Amino acid sequence: MTKRPCCTRCLRPQSHCLCADIPDLHSATELLVLQHPSEQHHALNTARLLCLGLDTAHLLVAEHVPDDWMAWLQDADYRTELLFPGPDAGELASTSDGRPRRLVLLDGTWRKARKLYYLNPVLHPLPQVALPAGPPSRYRLRKSPGAEALSTLEAGVRALGILEPAIDFTPLLRPFERLIDGQIAAMGTLTYQAHFAHRGAGKPGKP
Results as ranks from 00 to 15, higher is better:
residue 46 T to K: 00
residue 146 G to K: 06
residue 43 A to Q: 13
residue 104 V to K: 03
residue 70 M to V: 13
residue 53 G to R: 01
residue 115 K to L: 15
residue 51 C to P: 04
residue 118 Y to W: 15
residue 77 D to H: 14
residue 154 E to W: 06
residue 90 G to Y: 00
residue 103 L to W: 10
residue 145 P to Y: 03
residue 38 S to W: 03
residue 99 R to W: 10
residue 122 V to H: 06
residue 140 R to F: 03
residue 120 N to C: 09
residue 51 C to R: 02
residue 38 S to T: 14
residue 96 S to E: 14
residue 83 L to Y: 00
residue 125 P to A: 08
residue 51 C to Y: 05
residue 78 Y to T: 13
residue 112 K to Y: 03
residue 110 W to Y: 05
residue 140 R to K: 12
residue 147 A to C: 10
residue 145 P to S: 05
residue 40 Q to I: 02
residue 94 S to F: 06
residue 107 D to S: 05
residue 46 T to P: 02
residue 38 S to M: 12
residue 73 L to Q: 10
residue 85 P to W: 09
residue 105 L to F: 13
residue 136 P to F: 00
residue 131 L to D: 01
residue 44 L to H: 13
residue 121 P to M: 01
residue 63 E to L: 13
residue 151 S to G: 10
residue 65 V to T: 08
residue 70 M to Y: 13
residue 51 C to A: 10
residue 104 V to Q: 02
residue 82 L to M: 08
residue 145 P to N: 04
residue 132 P to E: 05
residue 75 D to M: 08
residue 72 W to L: 06
residue 63 E to D: 10
residue 46 T to N: 05
residue 87 P to S: 12
residue 59 L to E: 09
residue 94 S to C: 15
residue 46 T to R: 01
residue 140 R to Y: 02
residue 131 L to Y: 05
residue 123 L to F: 08
residue 64 H to I: 15
residue 140 R to V: 04
residue 65 V to L: 13
residue 65 V to W: 07
residue 97 D to C: 13
residue 41 H to V: 00
residue 87 P to K: 10
residue 62 A to E: 09
residue 129 V to I: 12
residue 119 L to C: 03
residue 80 T to C: 15
residue 74 Q to M: 14
residue 151 S to D: 06
residue 42 H to E: 12
residue 63 E to S: 13
residue 39 E to K: 01
residue 66 P to N: 06
residue 81 E to L: 13
residue 42 H to A: 14
residue 120 N to F: 08
residue 113 A to I: 08
residue 103 L to N: 09
residue 47 A to H: 04
residue 61 V to H: 05
residue 37 P to L: 02
residue 132 P to T: 05
residue 89 A to K: 09
residue 117 Y to K: 04
residue 67 D to V: 15
residue 57 A to M: 11
residue 71 A to W: 10
residue 109 T to Q: 05
residue 95 T to A: 15
residue 149 A to Q: 11
residue 146 G to C: 06
residue 135 P to G: 04
residue 87 P to A: 14
residue 139 Y to D: 03
residue 58 H to M: 11
residue 62 A to W: 06
residue 105 L to S: 03
residue 71 A to N: 13
residue 145 P to M: 04
residue 122 V to E: 11
residue 147 A to S: 14
residue 149 A to P: 00
residue 125 P to G: 07
residue 45 N to L: 05
residue 131 L to H: 02
residue 100 P to G: 12
residue 44 L to D: 09
residue 132 P to L: 06
residue 98 G to Q: 12
residue 143 K to W: 03
residue 43 A to D: 03
residue 46 T to S: 14
residue 79 R to P: 00
residue 86 G to Q: 08
residue 141 L to A: 01
residue 93 A to C: 15
residue 37 P to W: 08
residue 85 P to I: 07
residue 61 V to S: 12
residue 108 G to T: 05
residue 148 E to G: 06
residue 120 N to D: 02
